[in-house]
């Protein structure tokens, strides 16, 4: 059976977005458990990245009483409570229970407020999992942006904010873009502010984290007139191809930048020459073969033999971004080969 890529909780997917917005209060309309297990997960992941502020979550703490009589009054109180913390934006996420009994969350969010109060429908039982929560949240937030003048800059769209190396990936893609003279406009969304999001439309290209974000990329193209490149750079050849795509999309001459990147890649391969001739096997287990493609590319470039009794080396998924991502990965391969 293939590994499901859209599994998990819709609410968690949406929270991976809203908790990355600065000065945002997120209300979870449902039983306290829905907030608690997500709070624990987010807090643990943030702490692992030395980020120790707790996620700004408010639970409406629904009980059986609200299930029977309706819970809209609790949501009203929670919105009131959120206002008292003076956020820039309030995101209201629904849960399975709130959606089942049909609380009209939309109607409460539509009441005019001084700051944006947005509703992301996240009743998980309605189908879809983590990914749809992630995309729905971004899609809803994108309505806060207007079409802009299209400055020479790019947005990073759909970063996986719960992955351990999210900042490393960001630094690497920024470095590659900077080498072509392209600045990052808005990270949509990772540590971003409300004004960042509202200015989303001013960039001239969106770079999607990976192809799972294509539905969002398509919407942003339609709504804000910003085309997209469908993935961060992955693998050696993939990094060069990424640079060509970005260059073509922005009508830039990137010949020199590519030559520099290729030189950097050659230098990196030389630095790992002690691996040459080693026997390896991929220790990461996947249901699908295609995931190993960048692993084969690396093995060939470093002249490694793939053998069933070889040294175990990982091929992580998501694959590390850009040339420096490969450098970090090859350090792990060195350890695997005791080289």
């Amino acid at each position: 059976m293939p590994i499901p890529r859209d599994d998990g909780c819709t609410l968690t997917g949406a929270l991976s977005v809203t908790t990355e917005i600065e000065r945002c209060a997120t209300i979870i309309h449902g039983p306290s458990g829905c907030a608690h297990h997500n709070f624990s997960l987010l807090h643990a992941l943030h702490a692992a990245r030395d980020h120790i502020t707790t996620p700004a979550l408010i639970s409406t703490d629904m009980s059986e009483r609200e299930v029977i009589f309706g819970g809209e009054h609790l949501l009203e109180e929670a919105i009131f409570e959120a206002f008292s913390r003076h956020p820039d934006i309030i995101c209201v996420l629904s849960t399975c229970v709130a959606a089942t009994i049909g609380d009209d969350v939309d109607a409460l969010c539509r009441i005019p407020h001084d700051i944006p109060v947005i509703h992301v429908p996240t009743g998980g039982f309605l189908g879809g999992g983590f990914l749809s929560g992630h995309i729905n949240a971004l899609q809803t937030l994108s309505h806060l942006a207007k079409r802009g003048e299209g400055s020479l800059s790019v947005n990073l769209v759909g970063e996986k904010t719960l992955e351990y190396e999210v900042q490393e990936h960001y630094r690497e893609v920024s470095r590659i873009l900077a080498s072509m003279g392209v600045p990052v406009h808005t990270r949509f969304v990772c540590g971003s502010s409300l004004p960042d999001i509202q200015r989303l439309g001013n960039a001239s290209l969106n770079i999607l984290r990976d192809p799972s974000m294509v539905p969002l990329g398509t919407t942003l193209d339609r709504e804000l007139g910003i085309p997209f490149v469908d993935s961060f750079p992955l693998g050696m050849e993939g990094t060069i191809r990424f640079m060509e795509e970005v260059g073509a999309a922005l009508s830039l001459d990137v010949t020199d930048a590519i030559a520099e990147e290729e030189a950097l890649q050659r230098e990196m391969v030389r630095a790992f020459s002690s691996l040459k001739g080693k026997r390896i096997r991929f220790s990461t287990r996947y249901a699908e073969e295609g995931v190993f493609h960048p692993g084969y590319e690396l093995a060939e470039m470093l002249d490694l033999e793939i053998h069933e009794h070889g040294n175990p080396v990982p091929v992580p998924d998501p694959f590390p971004v850009g040339t420096h991502g490969i450098r970090r990965l090859l350090n792990r391969w060195m350890r695997g080969c005791h080289a």
Binding site: E64, E66, V67, I68, F69, G70, G71, E72, T100, I101, G102, D103
Partner: peptide
């Protein structure tokens, strides 16, 4: 008894 018409979940009210 149960909720006001149009809100909540009367079925859950019966179970409770």
């Amino acid at each position: 008894g149960g909720p006001e018409p149009g809100v909540g979940c009367a079925g859950r009210g019966i179970i409770a």
